[in-house]
Design a protein around this nucleic acid. Structure first.
Lengths: 352, 352
DNA sequence: TTGTAGGCGTTATCAC
DNA sequence: GTGATAACGCCTACAA
């Protein structure tokens, strides 16, 4: 049992030289048809596959890309991974996935891994303090594409794919305004989270642009959880007055609010319309299906791969770095759908 | 700008020969201390990293493992990926993740990828008809570890890590019986799903073993969704009678039932105790936090990596294939917790 | 159109 | 303890 069938075996089997076999792969045009057929059939017969290691060693571009993510079980991250994997597969690339480095030591180790395996490039999600990592990559000359960097900051150094969450917030609020709501609230999370800040900014923009008088409520939650949402719901109900519609910075918050409203006997969307964010799996099958802002993670992942490919396949330098900006999409469901939009009864005399 | 700093550069910088540099890595023992220090510092200074490609080409074991999964966004799959990644990182391995092949052609292409990259081994989740893939792997001599094959079938050919879902079902039902429930129901999903069948089998076992008279209800849902759960809940409530506790084949089903009960004004767990499966993210923050059977996915992933490592590091053959069986864990939450367990009042006079 | 040969960066063997 | 050298499998000039 031979250790591995190599190019030489194929050459012998086909009765040609090593170089010709190589040509069949790399310059099919220049080899005679019958020779090629002979070689191909020998390859088939022997079950020959090329050695990626030898190819890369010889200077061929690597077909490995690396994708470190913050949390491999986070729904948004996994959507990214899915998009990346699909696009990579189509491009004949393989994806090295991992948790992103948590500290300087891990970072250094990871950087070594990338260099050792001579990856084609890296996809980075700079949500946390990966500033140093980006710098290190730049220093080592490994190509990379940024995903999800804050739109409000200027264009980064290199290609990037971003989601415009400001537009998302605008979209969500516009939807509520269009439905006739005038008293709207924003249930936000920790404001230091860029995502929250952006959505909030967009919402405020839409409000400002609307022109007509509106009352704005705002509740800042300490965390983006269902429990925090419930607490917010309770606070909302305890007051003498409340908005007719709520835009929540995440689905979990919205779900918490929804639960609290349900227990208080209020109806969604009639008493209070609800819009969440992230279109979490469960949002569509909540007690009242939740309208939600969906971030195009899969597309973002796929685009990032294609950018990386472009960046690494054309001669470097000839390729202009580009910034792709994707827009969230509002998935409208029952929680904000109202046949006849109308303010709450006890505040106005307008019948539904 | 040099293309890449190689072992020769280090040798020159340290004033030693190539072989000595190699020895510093591969047999640190035989090189003199001061020489080693000199080499190490040269490595540091030059930022040298070894070429994995060259090493593998030379016959060193590859440090790539492949992990194809059915759905990269499925919560259980991602938990597996997480476990795999962690264990792999600890073992100095890198993980090639992908969606598992959907047809023969994809399968063949994937197999080629594995051979081309000369992966150390593959982790396979044989949930669907990957029979052919396993066979192909066996044929090509690529080591693999099976994860999650059906316990009820005999031990497979090779190492495997499995979750004993029969034990899971038993556990869940035992919990309900221990709480004093005598009328219990099983909301199952499509019986062709092995998971459902196993959980059901375990539940029935526990029931049989209990000895005391119990009434058993069973409702088979066409899908494992919230909608199906709601439908089941409706059916349950429409009858003249109903159980005091329900074991659902999935959290989504349980959540559906929970919603329906809530709308009907029934209280969980007082009127009906609920146990779900899979401990989905949202289970803990449902209206009533859901008791759920948790499958140890992370551990399974990690164990699988370690088995693969063992299988590929010891001389093959000397290593006995082993079957690891993991047991689910019941996470008890409010939906099945009752301070004073007691049968429903209107059906019996038995005090707790 | 096909064959030959050098080299990619390592590791391991064998002299020294 | 250290240094030279032959593979590993492939790609690509260049020669035929």
């Amino acid at each position: 049992m031979k250790s591995r069938v190599g190019i030489a075996d194929v050459a012998r089997e086909a009765g040609v030289s090593i170089g010709t076999v190589s040509n069949v792969y790399n310059r099919p045009g220049i080899v005679a048809v019958d020779t090629r057929i002979r070689v191909l059939s020998a390859i088939e017969r022997l079950g020959y596959v090329r050695s990626e290691n030898a190819r890369v060693l010889r200077g061929q571009p690597s077909r490995l890309i690396a994708f470190p993510v913050h949390d491999l079980t986070d729904p948004f991250c996994t959507t990214l991974v899915q998009g990346v994997e699909e696009a990579a597969r189509e491009a004949g690339l393989a994806v090295l996935v991992s948790r992103s480095a948590r500290n300087a030591e891990e970072e250094a180790r990871y950087l070594d891994l990338l260099k050792e395996h001579e990856v084609r490039g890296v996809l980075i999600t700079p949500a946390d303090k990966s500033r140093s990592f980006t710098a290190a990559l730049q220093g080592s000359g490994i190509p990379f594409v940024l995903m999800g960097n804050d739109v409000r900051q200027g264009p980064p150094s290199g290609c990037s794919v971003t989601i415009d969450d400001v537009a998302g917030g605008r979209l969500a609020l516009q939807h509520l305004l269009d439905a006739g709501h005038r008293d709207v609230g924003f249930i936000s999370g920790p404001l230091r989270l860029p995502l929250v800040g952006q959505r909030r900014a967009g919402a405020l923009e839409a409000l400002a642009q609307a022109g007509h008088p509106t009352t704005v409520w705002e509740l800042v939650c300490p965390a983006m959880t269902v429990a925090a949402g419930r607490e917010a719901g309770r606070r909302l109900l305890s007051g003498p007055d409340r908005p007719t519609a709520l835009f929540c910075a995440s689905d979990l918050l919205a779900l918490g609010v929804l639960q609290e409203l349900g227990e208080a006997g209020l109806r969604v969307p009639d008493d209070l319309a609800l819009v969440g964010c992230d279109d979490v799996e469960y949002a569509s099958s909540a007690g009242v299906p939740l309208t939600s802002l969906r971030r195009p993670g899969r597309i973002m992942g796929a685009r990032a791969v294609r950018l990386l490919e472009a960046e690494t396949t054309r001669l470097r330098g000839e390729h202009d770095h580009c910034q792709v900006v994707l827009t969230p999409e509002l998935v409208v469901r029952a929680s904000s759908r109202r046949e006849t939009p109308a303010p709450r009864q006890y505040r106005s005399a307008v019948a539904p």
